[in-house]
Computed example of a mutant assay.
Amino acid sequence: MPFILEGLAAEEPVAVAVPRGNLNLIREALGERAAAEVRLLDMGEAGRNPGRIIPSVLRAFADLHPGTHVRIIGEPIWPGRSATEYPACLQHEALINLAFAGRDATILCPYDVERLDPVVIKDAEETHPVIVDASGTRTSSRYEVDHVLRECNQPLPPPEDAATMRYGHDLHPDPLTRVRDFAAEYAARSGLSGDRLDDLRLVASELAANSLDHGGGSGVLRIWREDGRVVFDIGDAGHITDPLAGRHPADTHQLGSRGLLVTHLLGDLVRVHTGPAGTTTRVYFDVNGDA
């Protein structure tokens, strides 16, 4: 609350993106009049996939106020995040300072020290240059985002039972149609429907197009069911060198594909492993809204 009220007193734009329970507490503490001056977002919805928080929450708000100092509260890690989600959350936290380099913004990331695993709190000291706790404000002696990003870029565990297809211009006359149909048919049999099925079809097509254009001209699609989700990944020979790839807000002047950004915006969770030997992009879609 002091962080928010100080911002409002200085007439600075303020945004708060936290899970719904905490959002309700903040709204109540602010009161109706002050709450109307703050951009309030449910992080459980806006940040369900941690990979979309930078482009669609943090940068989306900051970019509305060019040349102005902004304050943002973002809580991407809360009790209840799964072990599958956590590496993506940790990677997101490590990328924030890189995404905001040279910009006039202060971002506060709350951590529930009573309910989160102590390992999570230790990780936070590696992804944040400044720590605020019961003892006051201090510089983090463990701040080391490059190490965190290397640790987050690990090979993804192989699926136990996946339907697989290879695609490429040398294999099919219309590989993107084959990829879309293969993925959508499997997902539909697994219970995905409506707009979410259309989203999966689009993401599969965008990632496969990246393979054809930038990943050696071919790739492998694997799709399977896992814990109430339809999961698929695309593997190819490409190497992503920009750590913020897929997290830059859409640029209307950009030519070519925005496939990885579309993937982050539409998927319920996205994991990427990349290196000189190739890239695997894994996307999770919740069936019936349940993880």
Rank of each mutant, 00 (worst) to 15 (best):
A105D: 06
G67Y: 10
T84V: 15
D290G: 01
T281V: 15
A134I: 08
R142G: 00
R225D: 15
L197E: 02
F285A: 00
W224N: 06
S135K: 15
T137D: 05
V270L: 12
I53K: 04
D268K: 10
A183H: 03
L30T: 09
R247G: 01
L108C: 10
N97V: 07
L41N: 02
W224H: 11
L255R: 13
G21K: 07
N49R: 06
R33H: 09
E114G: 03
D42C: 08
F3E: 10
W224Q: 06
V145A: 12
A184Y: 05
S190T: 04
E206K: 06
S211Y: 02
A46R: 12
A83W: 13
L192W: 02
I54Q: 04
D170T: 14
D290A: 13
D242Y: 03
E144I: 01
A250Y: 13
G67L: 05
M165W: 01
V130Q: 08
L255E: 11
V203C: 02
I54D: 02
V270I: 12
T241L: 11
M1C: 04
D133G: 14
P155I: 05
A88N: 07
G215V: 07
S140I: 11
I223M: 06
I223H: 02
P158C: 01
T279G: 07
E126P: 00
R258M: 06
I54V: 14
G67V: 05
G219F: 07
V38E: 04
